[in-house]
């Protein structure tokens, strides 16, 4: 909150730009460096796969992976992507819906926090991959068990970040609320929750990528559609290039979802970001 002092730094990089060396310019352009590194990696990968004649079931060259996309037609890809995306998003939504009231309870009541927190830690400590088959048997083979598995893997970071955020409110604002004798629920909705937004979003960013992992794990155990299913099916047939193609799609899905959460924060809650990133 020292607005006096920190007006200047944001513009430094641009002002210095004209007389920069190549390396300095690369560092100052945020996207260039990682893209170049990535391209170099692909070239090395392609070259070594060809030079050392690595069999494609061990490490397919990038060009073979691209061919792998042609293994099934576009309509089938869409079906696989949609199945995984749907489970990941529903599981993520359930995780948000469940962790919010839990976090409010943990933040407001020390008793509840003592009673509930150990159980949450135990649930978090259960290896979800190991429970997945059990859940499938109990809940059947439609979306429900996959959503539950996704929820289990993605809700804990949300509870922790929301609770931390709800407790991070400056005590003076709580005193202000008390001095106004405002109803309790407004202390939550008008002070604590908005204050928790930056924390909630760091939890959401972790949670959304975990949700994709959850959906894939669930598909490994029991599914007949979805990218996780597709990868498992492809590997069992030793069709590694198309399994890699599935992997590339999963990575793209995770990155897109992560980016969507970041964008939502920037659009709806710009004040919650550090100044230089608004």
């Amino acid at each position: 909150m020292t607005a006096d002092a920190d007006i200047a730094p944001a513009h430094d990089a641009e002002e210095k730009a004209p007389g920069l060396s190549l390396t300095e310019r690369l560092i100052s352009a945020p996207a260039a460096l990682p893209l170049l590194t990535f391209a170099a990696l692909l070239i090395v990968w392609e070259a070594s796969a060809r030079i050392f004649a690595i069999p494609s079931y061990i490490l397919p060259a990038p060009t073979r992976v691209i061919q792998g996309f042609g293994a099934v037609d576009a309509g089938r890809w869409v079906a696989h992507v949609w199945a995984t995306l749907r489970v990941a998003l529903i599981g993520f939504a359930v995780a948000i819906a469940v962790s919010l009231p839990i976090a409010v309870g943990l933040a407001k009541s020390r008793l509840l926090s003592r009673a509930l927190y150990p159980i949450l830690v135990v649930i978090q400590s259960v290896p979800v991959v190991a429970v997945a088959p059990i859940i499938i048997v109990v809940l059947g083979t439609d979306d429900a068990p996959r959503v539950v598995i996704t929820f289990m893997i993605s809700f804990f970071p949300l509870v922790v970040s929301m609770t931390t955020g709800l407790m991070a409110t400056p005590p003076e604002l709580i005193e202000l609320s008390r001095s106004l004798r405002a109803p309790q629920h407004r202390e939550i909705t008008q002070i604590r929750l908005p204050y928790a937004i930056p924390y909630i979003f760091s939890g959401l960013k972790i949670s959304i990528t975990l949700a994709v992992i959850g959906a894939v794990v669930a598909e490994f155990v029991a599914a007949d559609v979805g990218i996780g299913y597709f990868i498992q099916f492809s590997t069992s047939m030793f069709k590694l290039p198309q399994a890699w193609a599935g992997l590339v799609i999963l990575v793209a899905m995770s990155l897109t979802l992560f980016q969507a959460v970041s964008t939502a924060q920037r659009v709806f809650f710009p004040w919650s970001l550090p100044k230089e990133r608004r």
């Binding site: 003076e172 202000l176 407004r186 008008q190 908005p194 919650s272």
Partner: peptide, 22 residues
């Protein structure tokens, strides 16, 4: 208070009227 402890998401007007809203 010692620190202004304003609501960072609310503009000056909304911060001042916050007691009424709250």
């Amino acid at each position: 208070f010692q620190q202004a402890t304003l609501l960072p998401w609310a503009n000056v007007l909304d911060n001042v009227t916050f007691p009424a809203k709250h």
